[in-house]
Nucleic acid binder design. Structure first.
Lengths: 160, 160
DNA sequence: TTTAAATCATTTCACCTGCAATTATCTATT
DNA sequence: AATAGATAATTGCAGGTGAAATGATTTAAA
């Protein structure tokens, strides 16, 4: 005994069981990223995390950033960024530079080779985004989606 | 194919450099998932992969599935599913059952304890989805987003 | 100045991940 | 029936991951 029956007009939708937006969002993300990574891999290129770092550095002032800034911009934990920059540096795509006035810190700076790699990756990455993602959305949808994502990201800004 | 030169009036937009839909999509996804996982972790509950398995099994016929079916439905590589089910089984949330007529195969079946855990996780997961995701979208946006994600997923269905 | 706390980057550790064998079993062909 | 080839699940391995500990240095406080 408990139910509040005696509701004259039930407006509850009849047991909708279609997959809702959230699980679709998760599944679609995984599928799309896998597809794009596949393209890069097939082309013998490094993965998205490398591109992200190269891309962030390329548009940074002097094409360099402190390790912590780079980690934040690329949304990578700092411990991972250290190791990622190790590999990038070993491949000559970035170099570490000392920070004048703070011997604790280090800059990561994009090298010309790193910028070449960024461009090479973009020639694969850009069409992949188009074929996997943009092609399936109308112009309005793309704009609407971007706005939604911006709003969600803003609302869930990495808390202090 | 694409090039049409000799266009008298250039309609190219003037160097737009606002972040487009794809990178926003990636960033938002990561932020939202991190937020939701944080909620589950804070509540002392297992992570999303556990929930996914429990949820898929709960709605399966007889609340059980073959390992391969479960891996596909949960979008988890089979080798990982084996180890995940190991842990779930150790915690009594699922049990493995032999398949009559095929001694290679195994079912994973949801236990009552597993269903209790699914419910317990849902009491945290559901409000988390609302607060982190749904709350920031209008009803129309939610529908539009789901449709976009469905279309993208369909278009990028895990190729054979 | 000496001491304590904060900061930056790195390293450690324990765990997770996916690919590629491996094992066991089933199916099809001869 | 015997063999070869598929298939199901697991396991080995090589490498990636983040939280927390560490080392080095700077800043703030006493």
């Amino acid at each position: 005994m408990s139910e509040k029956k005696t509701r004259p007009t039930r407006s509850k939708p009849p047991l909708k069981k279609e997959p809702s937006a959230w699980p679709m969002f998760l599944k679609a993300h995984d599928a799309l990223v896998a597809r794009v990574e596949e393209r890069l891999c097939d082309a013998g290129l490094p993965d998205l995390s490398w591109f992200t770092v190269l891309w962030v550095l390329e548009r940074a002032p002097d094409q360099r950033l402190r390790m912590a800034e780079l980690a934040d911009a690329a949304v990578i934990p700092r411990s991972n960024l250290t190791r990622l920059v190790d590999k990038l540096e070993k491949d000559g795509l970035v170099v570490r530079e000392r920070v004048s006035g703070d011997r604790r810190g280090a800059y990561a700076r994009l090298t010309p080779e790193g910028d070449s790699m960024r461009k090479a990756m973009w020639t694969v990455y850009k069409p992949a985004i188009n074929e996997v993602f943009l092609q399936h959305l109308s112009a309005q949808e793309t704009v609407a989606l971007r706005e939604m994502m911006e709003r969600l990201l803003e609302a869930n800004h990495t808390e202090v």
